[in-house]
Amino acid sequence: MITESAPVRRILMTLAFGFVGLFLIVPLVTVFGGALQGGFPLFIKNIRDPYTRAAILLTLQTAAVVVPLNLLFGVTAAWAIAKFDFFGKRTLMTLIDLPFTVSPIVSGLIFVLLFGAQGIFGPWLMRHDIKIIFAVPGIILATIFITFPYVARELIPLMQAQGNDQEEAALTLGSGGWRTFFLVTLPNIRWGLVYGVILLNARAMGEFGAVSVVSGHIRGLTNTIPLHVEILYNEYNLVGAFSVASILAFLAIATLVTKMLIKWKTRQEMILEEAS
């Protein structure tokens, strides 16, 4: 095997470790260190605070709506884009990336401009007593917008790389469209799908900027975990802030461990397949 000379390898490794340490390990240690500053009992007390619990619940609810919707969109969009050729495909792909390029505050703002009391649909919504902004629907909408591209971005290159041969064969053999999708396509993309969902979920739970604009910050009602972290931080409760933040960091790590397990399992299956 070709590789670099030992000193070069050592330099590269040091650089990589230094970079990762500086930018990933240090923030992580700061969060957990801050959370446990007051000892473990205080940490537990912080987490069991009723407002914290309400925030966790709201965050989970939001994710429970956002993830399935964007998952459905991601799969459908990937099917249309990866499996077919049509004019304007590149433009469509760039448009799907659009939410990446919008500043989170602006992502919140545009929904205020749409549904706020002074917005386009605002007066109509007020008359019918429908609340979108400063209520759970607004939080969900902003989160959907922010996490819009994740699954599609994950699946499109994967499905493109896999090509259409297998599906075409299944169709020739008389399998129906849905059957082909579930029995041929889905198994091929499932791990990519799970990877996309994991990132989507993590981002949905962690979004701060956009949600902060549309939330209204009503304690116990419209505060998500990240917003609650900010509130605690502003209340001089730094230990509390880091404790609640560590829930999110923990969630992030749990997500990443799941992803690693998935990767490992995929490799395992590939080895099995190759063996058989």
Binding site: V112, F115, G116, A117, Q118, G119, G122, L125, M126, K131, I133, F134, G216, H217, I218, R219, G220, L221, I231, N234
Partner: peptide, 20 residues
């Protein structure tokens, strides 16, 4: 009485935009 806190201007904006 429920509470909502934030920067003064941001809070006023929220009320203008429909926070009840």
């Amino acid at each position: 009485v429920q509470q909502s806190h934030g920067g003064s201007g941001k809070q006023a904006r929220a009320v203008i935009d429909g926070l009840e």
